[in-house]
Design a protein around this nucleic acid. Sequence first.
DNA 1: ATTGCATCTGAACGGTTGTTCATTAATCTC
DNA 2: GAGATTAATGAACAACCGTTCAGATGCAAT
Lengths: 195, 195
Amino acid sequence: MARTQGSHSDITGPRVRAAALKLFARGGYAAVSMRAIAAEVGVQAGALYNYTPDKQSLLFDLMQDHMQALLAAVPEASGDPIARLKDFVAFHIRFHADRPDAVFIAYMELRNLEPANFARIEALRGAYEDRLEAILSDGVARGVFAVSDTKIVTLAVIAMLTGVNTWFRAGGRLSLDEVVAQYWDMVRKAVGASC
Amino acid sequence: MARTQGSHSDITGPRVRAAALKLFARGGYAAVSMRAIAAEVGVQAGALYNYTPDKQSLLFDLMQDHMQALLAAVPEASGDPIARLKDFVAFHIRFHADRPDAVFIAYMELRNLEPANFARIEALRGAYEDRLEAILSDGVARGVFAVSDTKIVTLAVIAMLTGVNTWFRAGGRLSLDEVVAQYWDMVRKAVGASC
DNA sequence: ATTGCATCTGAACGGTTGTTCATTAATCTC
DNA sequence: GAGATTAATGAACAACCGTTCAGATGCAAT
């Protein structure tokens, strides 16, 4: 029997998750019914419960997987803070541009998580922010960044970079390379690197 | 009879709107029932329909009023682009910090608007962005800003400033004055003003 | 062929949804 | 005080919600 009963994020049916990701991103968690997800998969609603214990777990698993993938992929080099910051900017934009649905859900559906699940996602988000703040702190320590409050700059930069997802569309006026270059230019100036 | 039948955003009961604003911001449009709004007001669900034709109008009116208030309040001075940009940054942060619930709804519930309503809200948002872009374009024309793409910088700055709402809390580590100063510092550098 | 397992169906569960409306209650006008 | 106006109730509507489960179905190993 495949009915799930533990964490199980690793065996949840990929097609169910893909359907939930797509529909949650379009309509929002609360507005999407299990029957709608089932219809997207081409199955009856009851069949979904072979792959997830309930709707909340479906949402949580999607968000957790996204955040874990983000943390696993963020570059972790040491050395020149300017190069590391530039890598971070490029990574963040590209990683988020690659999975707009997951990003949308991870930012918009936090309030639909049960408190315990919310805390776990927030912890992952905090760990990601710490990666950027470490780069900034290192740059300040080495005297290459002029930043008075690394925490604020961390949050400001991440908000600015994540904002790309609200307007960027492949095949639009700008290529992703151009977008990355423009944002790196702004970030570089904002942190006062070689200015 | 007070039953509404047109646009009516001006006569919708303030207490109903305040309750809807609060609950929509906390739980999301789709997750908040008319009965929950009625309970917050201290009334039965049927009574709400004396003040709004339906739930969708309640959401739309909240968003439209927020965007119109934003447009009505944004400073419209002429002259020194640096001073105008500084004013814009301070205005945006303070205006948004003052109404976190309305801001939250205006950003998160766009997908719950019917297409026609969505288009009207997007138009208002575009008009607001145009205000900032006009400042940037003017600064570029006068040679005081080093910005290669005013549209991207507009979106990046607004995303960065709006991000303040996700973490700022009155009485926290930083005062709003300090936050405004820090963000102005970043924006000023990012647009290459006097650098 | 038969057993056993994994999967899906389809109906059912109690409960909630947005909305309507006849009725009641309260307030205002004359 | 009578009459008109306004607002709230509370029940009802059909539709839909997440979830469960007995039974049907199909496939793999024996």
